[in-house]
Design a protein around this nucleic acid. Structure first.
Lengths: 347, 347
DNA sequence: CTGAAAGCGCTTACAG
DNA sequence: CTGAAAGCGCTTACAG
């Protein structure tokens, strides 16, 4: 009898049944390679002794494949898991992986990639701009890699058209001409800045999609005869209520004749924080303040007033990325559609 | 020269440097086992040829450890990733794993466990009640296993005291005596039911924590001289806005003299949906309708009116589960504290 | 301080 | 239809 504590292997099973390990393996993996009777005998014995099937460690070493796909998250795991946009993206990835017998490994990128387990994965999806641009070179170069929401030299990527989306929503918002439009950026400055942006240098368009969004806003402002450089801007370092709140309080607490009456926000999280703080201050939306967001998260739509925003289909983004990494879809860069949602915060 | 396409191994490196594979391995894993000079030479050559370090597949087969911990999610991955409570839990797990050089594998439980990759993991955290109670037997029995928010025979678990928490919040809510209290359950019926619960049999306390919550509500109602069985109950099958909304609309659209004036909800998601739909109908909160939630998610607090609810620290729950599975904390069942949060929906 | 050798559990061409 | 054998990449006692 196999001692209960020891792990049971294909070899044990083969010995008990006086067949070869190849036959046991075939019983699990290639039913056509042995007679049904023998297969039943093997699977029956496996059940009887509590053998759950070939161990993934041996299998992955032998075959070179683990059926694990890693998503490398530029932001911390804590942030990513609590952010609606990132969560939807992951749900889309997981959905496709699951449907094709793969599982999802979550890899943080802070403090260097954790190569030990990373080298387990069959492919990598890098989500969002990595803190260190060289970091992707720490990933096994022979395995498929793709990026989402930013570009990695020579790799396929999935994007939305941030410029067009921002142009569209800003044009919509500006049809009702504001007296004092303003912009709230998300991580757009070269150096961290949580507050008003005056002369701080900004990241370039190739460095962050939020800079591309800014260009879209600016273009629409120009069309409406505002001078983009004169439109006040604030910047926010992390897309969470706690980090947004003080900056937004600063904006809303400006004297009435300085307080913006249109806020173009780079995320729904920012816009929702504006909404909450504005309501607390008794400002009327949209009469006193018009607000636009970006992303189209559920929280912005399942409330009154609903957010005017651009919906990006993050779930679909995840599905596309997963399909490509599994090779179900040709690995080529894709641009996904966005949709203007007109809510009550900027009708 | 190693052909560029072929994976580089410790063996290649050893050959190039005319040392043994043991020494190359030691250069990466046990710096004290070789001279600094030799180590530098090895690591330098590794960098030069693009060798990223020992492959996890070989290592995990040899050592029997992968530094991967799997979280088995009772609900679908899509739901779990988009649910605030589950996301916070995962964030807590990920935080501790990350700090200790481990990574997180997400395993859905629908349609049977995906053993192929599951057998890779060093340990398992099962979150929420599995669809099939026998399912955990499909997990390797030699590796650590623990359950969260439900019990698995003979395994450690992490819980909150749902009974006490619900007793506390219901007592608070009932201090202002309602005319028509009612309860909105979450997945408490034996057969799926999305609507009013009249005679449907309920799950037992050992089957679901929501039944335990119900008992807490009932106890407080009794104390306040209500007859629990006469207090109307509704049930909701999935904790999402879309599934909640029709049931809640049905409740709020009752004639004024039948509509509850206190709704004890088993989750913040339910309570927030009540709030949104009540506001749309022009009901005054809390004058016309008092609402309590459960969970204490951010979305319920970063708004006006804030939800009266019980805060459970899901992040901490994740941290505790991860610490135990890694063996940093003794693997024994734990009961975490909860806290009553008095917001404006039931002052 | 360094190396030769065994073996983790598995799958796969190949031979019979 | 079945089995003997090789080898995936690695680490670890052990010998020198």
């Amino acid at each position: 009898m196999t001692p209960p504590n020891r792990r049971i292997t294909i070899k044990d099973l083969a010995a008990r049944l006086a067949v070869s390990t190849a036959t046991v393996s075939n019983a699990f993996n290639r039913p056509d390679q042995l007679s049904p009777a023998l297969r039943d005998r093997i699977l029956g014995e496996a059940r009887a002794v509590g053998y759950l099937g070939p161990d993934a460690r041996g299998r992955s070493l032998r075959t070179g494949r683990s059926r694990i796909i890693a998503v490398v998250l530029a932001d911390s795991l804590t942030y990513s898991l609590n952010d609606a946009v990132a969560s939807e993206f992951l749900a889309g990835v997981a959905e496709v992986l699951d449907a094709h017998g793969h599982t999802l490994l979550l890899l943080p990128s802070r403090g260097g990639l954790r190569l030990e387990s990373a080298s387990m994965a069959d492919g990598f999806i890098v989500y969002g701009l990595l803190p260190d641009p060289e970091m992707h070179q720490q990933l096994p170069s022979q395995r498929p890699l793709m990026s989402v929401d930013f570009d990695l030299a020579g790799q396929a990527s999935v994007h939305i058209d941030n410029h067009a989306a921002c142009l569209t929503i800003a044009r919509h918002a500006l049809r009702h001409r504001p007296s004092r439009p303003a912009i709230i950026n998300l991580r757009s400055t070269l150096e961290p800045c949580n507050g008003r942006v005056i002369d701080q240098p900004l990241l370039s368009e190739s460095q962050t999609i939020t800079r591309v969004r800014l260009t879209g806003f600016h273009e629409a402002l120009s069309e409406h005869h505002f001078v983009p450089d004169e439109v006040p801007m604030w910047n926010i370092e992390e897309n969470t209520f706690d980090v947004c709140a003080p900056v937004i309080a600063e904006i809303l607490d400006l004297p009435d004749d300085e307080r913006p009456d249109l806020l173009l926000c780079m995320s729904d999280r920012i816009a929702l924080t504006v909404l909450t703080l504005a309501e607390q201050r008794g400002l009327r939306i949209p009469e006193d303040l018009r607000i636009t967001g970006f992303d189209g998260i559920a929280e912005g739509q399942y409330r009154a007033p609903r957010l005017t925003t651009v919906r990006q289909d993050s779930v679909e983004k995840g599905r596309v990325a997963a399909s490509m990494i599994l090779g179900l879809t040709p690995r080529e860069s894709r641009l996904l559609k966005t949709e203007l949602i007109v809510g009550e915060t900027a009708p």
